[in-house]
Amino acid sequence: MESLSNSSDLSTKPRRSPKSPKNNSNKQPNSFLRFINSKKVVPYLFVAPFIISFLILTLYPAIQGIIMSFQRVLPGQVTFVGLANYERLANPVFYKALLNTTLYVIFTVLILTIIPMLLAIFLDSKFVKFKTLFRASLFLPALTSTIVGGMIFRLMFGEQDTAVANQIMSLFGLDAINWRFTSWAAIFLMVILASWRWIGVNILYFLAALQNVPGELYEAADIDGASKWQKLRYITIPQLKPIIIFVSTITIINGFRMFEESFVFWEAGSPGNIGLSVVGYIYQEGIRQNDMGYGSAIGVILMLIIAVISLIYLIATGTFKRGEN
């Protein structure tokens, strides 16, 4: 309310301004207030929270993390150990974590790019009724937390014959599976949980991108007598390229950051580490074992992996070619 009356006042203000002399007389002697309100200072004060938070919450931990990766950190006793933490990384548990995470990334990026794209293309066609309803239903899983979603999946993929997943298996004449304790199924569980939660969000990205495909392209193709398949292959998919690159990049990065999907199925540890992720390994070593130095070394490796992917993304989108903006 207040704001409305304020902005409608604006047009008339320059003509009558009884306030401003009073304001001026208030301010003139007070050079501090004037300084604080000068256009040179104001932007910096506005940006200050960001600068402070960058220094304390990003720059400091990033540097400290790199330093700690060369240290052995015990309470009240910190010693430099050179590359010892990195040498310790050459062990089967870390390899297992890296392998699990990589497999998870490969499956999620395939599923979460291709399926949402196809669903968005179909959803965008004139043949589908109740579009808003379908879009909303597919989006709904994104509102659940991984913990709640994972808990449901844990019960659906229970080891009992009566659990939903095993009931479906027996429908096809297959044996019941002990999902949470089978190596391939461990990856499958994490992938399907992530896919279920994110498909709806990615569909929205593709739907938004589809609205930006110029209609003339299809009209021209119609005149040339192109088939539906040709239109999809030569117009729609090339036009969607930027969003495909974007969606696959965030999926890859989120994949390497995966932790909760593993935690919710096995809490602190899975049998034979079948569900261990890289971040899970950081948690296990850095927090649980309180070995901050080693945990930081894993973190640095993760940082490098993600930096490389981000760089590839920037190159793929031509950020460096275009220069500013």
Partner: peptide, 8 residues
């Protein structure tokens, strides 16, 4: 990613 800053 936040995960690599979390230990410090």
């Amino acid at each position: 990613p936040f995960e690599i800053l979390m230990l410090p």
